[in-house]
Design a binder for these strands. Structure first.
Lengths: 150, 150
DNA sequence: ACATTTTGAATGTTATTACATTAATTACTG
DNA sequence: CAGTAATTAATGTAATAACATTCAAAATGT
């Protein structure tokens, strides 16, 4: 459905404003879809994203700051978010040896296993969610990069 | 900056996953920028968006459900969100005459004034944020619409 | 070496969100 | 028409996020 129809709005201030609204709306649409995947595993989306980030650094721990750098939404509460992952046994935390202010956070086997499980569902959903071909997807990604240029 | 560099990640599962990440990242980028505009007015983004929706229905009140329909992120807490707008005097609430379950919410003059003020800032920012031309913007919006097709 | 500044992470507090439930009114059905 | 279901909005609650502050450790300057 076109964004005009989704928002019951036919006129926009300008085309850039329309893009901004469409982006936010689409992001939310994506968010809802992903939430449906995550719900059975009682993950919040930030928790899931951080766990993926940890997996992305195999056999090597990341500090809290390193996690924040890699996050989609750089939030302040990563300490407490990591607490949740520890509680569930999906990661471990230990003091860094070279800088005693830092902490090393490492994904556990249990964390890797749950991610594998979710990934299957995630991929099914990701591939179903669009009628775009790969060219369109690439084009879209490039335009998003361009949008952020200034 | 390309998304690969932003996220310090060179490989993605597939092009659709890359698009999804890019979309979420770009949305957050947009969110941060808009937040900077809103901060001096101590609006949250949902509050601002709802006030814009109310303005979009001039001289005509909207029910809570009508607001939800038009929102970018259809959230459940619109009652309390509207409370905030009432507290600040940006809107009024009255019982609907034809259906006594419904309430009519109407933007106030004060609400219109503050929106005008913010809009100036908003527009300055919106026009500065991109090197895209109008064609690119239109193309991007179309691709977002297409992404949501299924 | 010592004082000062900066950095990395955690915590306290308040506001906001998510989720489930409730209360009131309207719509539907036999 | 009575009884049941559906709807509209508000509320209770627990979890999460935002924002500022704190604490320890490291870096820097004199």
């Amino acid at each position: 459905m076109k964004i005009e129809k989704e928002l019951r709005q036919t006129k926009f201030n300008n085309v850039y404003h329309k893009v901004a609204l469409n982006l936010m709306f689409t992001n939310n649409w994506l968010f809802e879809g992903q939430n449906k995947v995550l719900k059975p595993y009682s993950f919040t989306q930030p928790q899931y994203n951080v766990l993926r980030i940890l997996r992305g650094s195999p056999n090597q721990a990341l500090t809290v700051n390193a996690i924040i750098e890699r996050m989609l939404d750089r939030m302040s509460n990563v300490s407490r978010l990591v607490d949740k992952l520890l509680e569930k046994g999906y990661a471990t935390r230990s003091q860094s040896s070279d800088d005693r202010r830092s902490v090393d956070i490492l994904i556990s086997q249990k964390g890797l296993d749950i991610l594998d499980e979710i990934d299957e569902q995630q991929e099914i959903w990701e591939k179903s969610f669009t009628k775009m071909d790969e060219n369109d997807a690439k084009k879209l990604s490039d335009l998003l990069d361009k949008l952020r240029e200034r």
